[in-house]
């Protein structure tokens, strides 16, 4: 428990910064929406934008003049933001000990490396949940002035579940990289690279029917906001796939970290 609490405390500043970023995103998002709200003419402007971009951001799938539709578009941005935070926390929580050379202290204490991973991962999970709640509350507050209906609240709640699963996938990937990579710099840059590659895969897979299989390689495609809105459910197969990815990453993390030499 001591590792867990120390880690939470040490990461508090980072959590504050990320909360600030997310709230800023909410603020900017709803400021833009105030222009769209009940103003169909503006939609015509969208048609002048490149098709690929519209597809990627699912700009036309939703009715941007309603708060529900607008949130459907914002979902992609939230997904990206929260995933970046998760993957960075995941890799950093482990690798920063080697970066700051504190690992010679923390692992010469009578603890197993497994216990260190467990405590740090749990602390990162708590931070992810807090950031998710900030996103949720921020969204509800931003939307409050536009009289959202019950469909909106249901959609947001479901999308938060999807965001949480996304966070956990990227957290697990980050933890795995932090544990497996011997050089901490590689771990962090690899974590962010994987995230960006999967994000662009998700865009590419949406552009062409032949490339649709790519969506299995990108967690950003697992939970389609359009389905969440129209069918009020998330795809159970992708939940299983996500759980599988998380499990593989965590098993890999414990296995590699216990066996490798620390970089001192």
């Amino acid at each position: 428990m001591n590792i867990f609490f120390r880690e939470l405390k040490a990461n508090f500043r980072s959590l504050l910064i990320w909360s600030g970023i997310v709230l800023l995103l909410v603020l900017v998002g709803f400021a833009k929406f105030s222009a769209y709200a009940g103003n169909p003419e503006l939609l015509a402007i969208l048609d002048t934008m490149p098709q690929a971009m519209i597809q990627a951001m699912s700009l036309r799938a939703f009715d941007l003049t309603t708060v529900t539709g607008f949130y459907g578009v914002m979902f992609a941005y939230f997904a990206l933001m929260l995933s970046i935070a998760s993957v960075m926390w995941g890799s950093e929580f482990i690798s920063k000990e080697e970066r700051d050379k504190t690992v010679e202290f923390s692992l010469s204490l009578p603890v197993t490396r497994g216990r260190l991973i467990t405590a740090k991962t749990l602390a990162a999970v708590v931070d992810c949940i807090v950031l998710l709640i900030v996103t949720w509350v921020g969204t509800l507050m931003g939307a409050a002035t536009y009289q959202p209906d019950s469909e909106f609240f249901g959609f947001v709640a479901l999308s938060m579940l999807a965001l949480f699963i996304l966070q956990m996938i990227f957290l697990a990937i980050g933890v795995f990289l932090g544990c497996a990579m011997k050089y901490y710099k590689q771990a962090n840059s690899m974590a962010v690279s994987i995230l960006l590659v999967t994000f662009f895969l998700s865009i590419i897979s949406g552009l062409n029917k032949n490339l649709e299989f790519l969506k299995y390689f990108s967690p950003f495609n697992y939970f389609n906001p359009l389905d969440m809105l129209n069918k009020s459910r998330i795809d159970i197969y992708f939940v299983f796939l996500s759980a599988g990815i998380i499990a593989v990453c965590m098993v890999g993390a414990y296995a590699t970290y216990s066996k490798r030499d620390l970089y001192i």
């Binding site: 050379k101 202290f105 010469s108």
Partner: peptide, 12 residues
């Protein structure tokens, strides 16, 4: 254990 160079968590 007393290492030759001591590194602890800053901000503590």
């Amino acid at each position: 254990y007393l290492p030759s160079e001591v590194f602890y968590y800053d901000r503590m």
